[in-house]
Amino acid sequence: MISSVVKWLSEPLGRVALLIVGLTVISGAAWGINVLQTTPEQPIEFPHVRHVSMGIPCLYCHPGATRGPSAGLPSPMKCWGCHQQMEITKTSPLLPPLVAAIENGTPLRWVPVAQVPDFVQFNHRPHLAAGLNCEDCHGNVAQMTIYQNPQVMNMGWCLNCHRERSAGNPELEKKLLDCGTCHY
């Protein structure tokens, strides 16, 4: 029985069948990867590039970074502070959701992209205090529209930097390589 199947697979029709199965598997996998990696749909396709090029510092909209764990996502009122004075607010096809949010008093449901799992306790403040800049981890946001992580934010990536920075300093090594620094 088995041998006849094997034999059939070596025939032209069998080979076609093999090809179809193979293609299905590969395209399924590709679709899966794509679904997982598509940047999430944001309420507004926010052009970081334009804002950064105007010279707005990251901390203007994400001020939490210097104070604690989360950098924060701006509320509509923050956007409105500038946008109410700008002509483009009325004309841009991107901005009706903002106008609607202001008019209705509803929030904009931004989808956080740079996220770590629940079992990782990340704190922005010490990273900035240690002299890191936003772009060291978040990449060149000045060239992005919707933010995308420039690399996978996983433990190996974290540890690499922690190792480099603490090398040769036993006290710092204790702190930066301690499991309990991030996991509790």
Partner: peptide, 9 residues
Amino acid sequence: MPEYTYHGE
């Protein structure tokens, strides 16, 4: 957002 409320704090 109230002025004194930062995300994460």
